[in-house]
Design a protein around this nucleic acid. Structure first.
Lengths: 344, 344
DNA sequence: CTGTTAGCGCGTTCAG
DNA sequence: CTGAACGCGCTAACAG
């Protein structure tokens, strides 16, 4: 801090050798001391550590990796431009083995197969310990193949090859969880508005919704409304449904965006939420859920746990654990806000 | 693909040595051939490349980096949980030197100084070529210090130390750009609602707003309304202003969230947008801007360009270019949608 | 407990 | 144009 001259990065970084010489020991001993191995006298260890911190030694991870064969780095390959899915998954992966233990190379392929290949090559080049592939929907995506030299785990979007390891949100359970919540707060005349019927997420959540209704002995007020994952669709579908069935008292929405659209139309129709009608969204996308009036109850996919698990799977496979293909589903959780329960 | 047995990752990855032996040349020659150097006979080169692709050789970046001193990797240190700022910046950095050339280690410190330190250590450990620090507001943040062994560039939030290199959005220009657009579509009775007055972004945009009004010979209908960066504030402030001045015809909002709130209240008051009143947001956050009714005209901070420039700065510094401290401002651009100009 | 030796995989001299 | 030799910084065997 006292130094005001422009920094020059020319000075070679101190190496373990420098540390060893300063401490008057061999490199091997210095290495053991720095890495906290047992076979070093306590006195020498202190001397080495003092020398290390004196010259500001930072171990060269490249050299370490070259010899140990581990980089403690995983690649995250995605096309999720918004970062809505990939960031929680990244945070989970970062935390899987404690703070700062493993690092994540984030690659955004932007939906381009060629760019994905470039990034894949770059990741293998850098000898990542494994790769997590994050799709942008829960529909299966094409496999990277079985020939990769490192473990690959597919997160959010499962792989289309059952030999691969995939982790995905349990949308069926989520749909059911949503409707069960509405029922638990006394709603009976319930409908479901969701997104594009071509998406597995839409179908699975709808199936969970129907199952939850049936289990409670209820019949949905109308058919499931499939459309698109937009606020506009939420507004339109809600208007149609309210016209057909003015006595609806619960909306299960397939996304937070659809739910926001529903809230807006309910306002236009003079219905108050949650008193007259309860609304629940899906995804728990904070910026949408906490800025609406009232705030939106939603289903959270627990993506952080999914990222944690993905990272663990990679290092298990590296340690020789048997790789079981197929998709593991993650249970979602309910996040209650003002759109289903009135604040006191 | 024909192989259905579980993959084992035990087989050593092919090395340059393997390639050389198969091609019947020395490692040195193989190296030159693979790296496209001139000092190799065309015939030998082909032979080497054939051998390389035959055994699926991928150069070991760790070894390369160890000898060249470059990892072609930069660290992105952030606390932007939403990823709203960091992802465009990341994409820009990825693209600075062509696809797949440089990789980015993304570290999320989650606003925790200790975690930031862990990540910083991990990055230096992995010998990144440089570090881009991305703050979550445009207020200056504390410097990482001048003692780091690699170049550091601060993006979005400038460093509080003028010796550091910082890149930030030009909020003053953005505020002016916004009001100029409203004036250009015929608005005269204009107000400005923005966020927390403690934020530089709020102050700078407000200053630009005032300057733009004055330059056009106009006087704002009311004082700048400072509050918070939320839809709720946008709703409330709009209601207050409409009550005081029913003839307002233009709202310049300090964020897209505030603008969405404004749109909602305008609906409640029966004003139609953009016919009666034009509304412009700030940040061009797609999910908010393109899902509102009507879609939101907004100011885009061109963060991708900022990320590109940050990466370039790092490698320039590495190549010995003089490091000029201080903050370089990036001009924003206008993105026009339906909230200021009626669609035909 | 400590030191010596041998690589990890590659780029780069500098003789041939 | 080609190859032998060296070193990047470090860890893992082994001897002492």
């Amino acid at each position: 801090m006292a130094d005001t001259s422009p920094r020059v990065h020319a000075t070679r970084a101190p190496t373990l050798n420098d540390v060893a010489q300063l401490a008057g020991v061999s490199m091997a001993t210095a290495s053991k001391a720095v890495n906290g191995r047992a076979e070093v006298a306590e006195k020498t260890r202190r001397r080495v550590l003092a020398a290390a911190s004196e010259i500001g030694f930072t171990p060269n991870g490249l050299a370490q990796s070259l010899v140990t064969g581990r980089t403690k780095t995983v690649g995250l390959l995605t096309s999720d431009l918004e970062g809505r899915f990939v960031l929680p998954i990244l945070m989970g992966a970062e935390d899987a083995f404690g703070s700062g233990e493993i690092s994540v190379l984030l690659c955004d392929a932007r939906g381009d197969r060629i760019r994905e290949n470039y990034h894949l090559k770059a990741l293998l080049n850098r000898r990542v310990d494994g790769i997590i592939v994050v799709g942008r929907s829960t529909d299966p995506r094409n496999s990277l193949g079985q020939q990769l030299p490192v473990p690959v785990v597919y997160a959010y979007a499962p792989s289309d090859d059952p030999r691969d390891q995939s982790l995905a949100p349990d949308n069926h359970a989520g749909g059911r969880l949503a409707v069960e919540h509405l029922i638990s707060v006394g709603r009976r005349r319930i409908v479901h508005i969701t997104g594009d019927p071509g998406y597995a997420a839409a179908q699975d959540r709808a199936a969970g919704f129907k199952e939850g209704m049936a289990a409670a002995g209820l019949t949905p007020v109308d058919e499931v409304m499939f459309g698109s994952w937009t606020e506009g669709w939420g507004r339109d579908a809600t208007a149609v449904l309210l016209q057909r069935h003015p006595d609806i008292d619960g909306f299960v929405c397939g996304s937070d965006q659809i739910a926001r659209g529903a809230l807006e139309t309910l306002r236009d129709f003079g219905r108050s939420v949650p008193e007259d009608v309860a609304v629940i969204g899906y995804d728990n996308w904070e910026v949408l859920a906490t800025n609406s009036r009232p705030e939106l109850t939603s289903i959270d996919c627990t993506l952080q746990g999914l990222g944690r698990q993905a990272a663990k799977r990679i290092f298990e496979a590296l340690d020789g654990a048997p790789v079981a293909g197929g998709t593991e589903l993650f249970l979602p959780k309910l996040v209650i806000r003002g759109s289903t329960i009135a604040s006191r």
